[in-house]
Amino acid sequence: MAFGVDELRVLRRALAVALHPVPLAEHDVQECLHLADSVDEAVREAGRLRAFLLADLARYRDALPGTATGYLERLQDALAAGYDPRPDDLAALRSLRGNPAAAAVLRRCQELAERSVRSRLAGRAVTVPAPAAPAGPRRARLLALPGGRAADEPKPKPKPQPKPPAPDERPVPKPSEVFPPRRKPVPPPGQWAVG
């Protein structure tokens, strides 16, 4: 995630207020709330993208051996993003053992799987650097920064927030839905040859 110049300015001001509490103008509070919403949306979008990519990987795996090249590309991208290979991936790669690229990816996946098993047996959790969708309920919203409002002002009642769509409510599109096949142009009816 990258922040723009304005977002960095808001973030810097919010951090300064958190370290040295002072009254904060309403405009500054609104900017902080807007930034928090933007970060929340980016996290949700990253989760949706990860779910789509993993579903895409599963579709290519299910269509093997005809999709070997596409599957290997998607699997390598997923591994680079911190994906932990599953038994289905190892079985699929073993079925492609005649392919030199698949054999190399199989060796890498076996090493990762072995490392994951050893970590679990040692009682440590495997850390995955890739971003994941939020698993539980949405994190609490930032309503006001500490010290950002005068103590004698009445606290406003929080407005009810619209419920965000759950990730399960949105179906993951198929590649053919995202990129429809190209159709050959049909000549206009006036150009048909009469025989």
Rank of each mutant, 00 (worst) to 15 (best):
V29M: 11
A25E: 13
K155F: 02
P181R: 06
L64T: 10
R139C: 00
A132D: 08
L96N: 04
L145Y: 03
E45A: 12
R12V: 05
P180I: 03
G190T: 10
L53A: 06
E111H: 06
L121Y: 01
Y60D: 11
K155I: 02
P87A: 09
L19V: 07
G148M: 12
C32D: 10
A42R: 15
A92C: 07
P160N: 09
A101S: 03
Q161M: 12
V128F: 04
V17R: 15
Q161R: 15
P129R: 10
G47P: 07
E169G: 01
V178N: 04
P185C: 04
L142Y: 04
A2I: 05
R149M: 07
A42S: 11
P165S: 10
A25N: 06
G70D: 05
A102P: 03
P187V: 06
G47E: 05
L75V: 15
D28Q: 14
A166R: 06
D152T: 12
A46H: 03
G123A: 07
A166E: 10
G147H: 05
Y60T: 10
L72N: 01
D6Y: 06
P21R: 06
L49V: 15
V43E: 15
D62I: 00
P171L: 00
L57W: 01
C32S: 14
R44Q: 11
L54N: 08
Q161W: 11
V17P: 04
T69V: 13
D89A: 03
G190I: 08
V117R: 13
Q76N: 03
A104N: 07
M1G: 13
A113S: 14
P167M: 14
G148Y: 02
V186M: 05
A46K: 01
E31S: 10
A132E: 11
R107Q: 11
L72D: 00
G123N: 01
P181C: 01
L90N: 05
P65N: 08
A122Y: 04
R141K: 06
A2E: 13
Y71M: 13
H34D: 14
A46E: 07
L96A: 09
A133N: 03
A113N: 12
G98N: 07
S116A: 06
L143E: 15
D89R: 00
A36E: 13
C109V: 11
L79C: 09
G70W: 02
V186K: 14
P87V: 08
R50V: 00
G147N: 01
K155E: 15
P134F: 00
E114T: 10
P146M: 06
R170A: 13
D88E: 14
P175F: 03
A132H: 12
G4S: 15
R12H: 12
P131R: 13
L79H: 02
L75W: 08
G66Q: 10
P180E: 10
G147Y: 04
R138C: 02
A122V: 06
R13A: 05
R182D: 14
Q110F: 04
A144I: 01
K163D: 11
